[in-house]
């Protein structure tokens, strides 16, 4: 027996409604404030590893190296800076993109250097939410499409 089409249609509509809700841009920009985030860098870790700010914040990331010269490159925002011990570096930017952004060391600092990675999380993680909604839609859609198809095929020989 194939999954009940009306059942699936109901689930599909529900998922679609949820999707529309989540995909819509957030109502109004969140109130931005000034945020100074202090991050220390050592081979091969940032501390803190995960930094959270709100959307719209004017962010100052102060990077302080504690062993050797390190750097920071922020994915998505494509900003970078270098910091030698004793000389903290600053990244100043407006956090206008929501989501999770990796930041990574930009100055070779040893073998694990390419994997020296931290995360900046800006506001509500809309990209992830959208992706998960897309996942739900694709899952239901694929199950419905292939399920009913193979259901018909499966019954045919009987």
């Amino acid at each position: 027996m194939a999954p009940n089409p009306s059942h699936l249609a109901f689930v599909g509509t529900l998922v679609l409604a949820l999707a529309l809700g989540a995909l819509a841009a957030p109502a109004g920009a969140e109130d931005g404030s000034d945020r100074v985030v202090h991050i220390t860098a050592r081979s091969f870790a940032f501390d803190p590893e995960i930094v959270r700010v709100n959307r719209g914040d004017r962010v100052v990331i102060e990077l302080e190296s504690v062993d050797a010269t390190h750097g920071i490159f922020l994915d998505g925002y494509e900003l970078s800076a270098k910091a030698e011990p004793g000389h903290p570096a600053q990244l100043v930017f407006a956090a206008d993109k929501t989501g999770s952004f990796r930041f990574r060391c930009s100055v070779a600092c040893g073998n694990l250097h390419p994997f020296m990675i931290g995360q900046l999380k800006v506001g509500r993680n809309l990209p992830l939410q959208r992706a998960l909604v897309a996942l739900a839609v694709v899952t239901v859609g694929a199950v419905w499409f292939y399920g009913t198809r193979s259901g018909r095929k499966g019954r045919a020989p009987d």
């Binding site: 027996m1 996942l135 694709v138 694929a142 292939y146 399920g147 193979s150 499966g154």
Partner: peptide, 20 residues
């Protein structure tokens, strides 16, 4: 995922009376 689900149901339809 879409291809995987496709394969899943192809496998399912070969030996199961019920697609679920």
């Amino acid at each position: 995922l879409v291809v995987a689900v496709n394969v899943v149901f192809k496998i399912g339809s070969t030996h199961a009376a019920r697609v679920r």
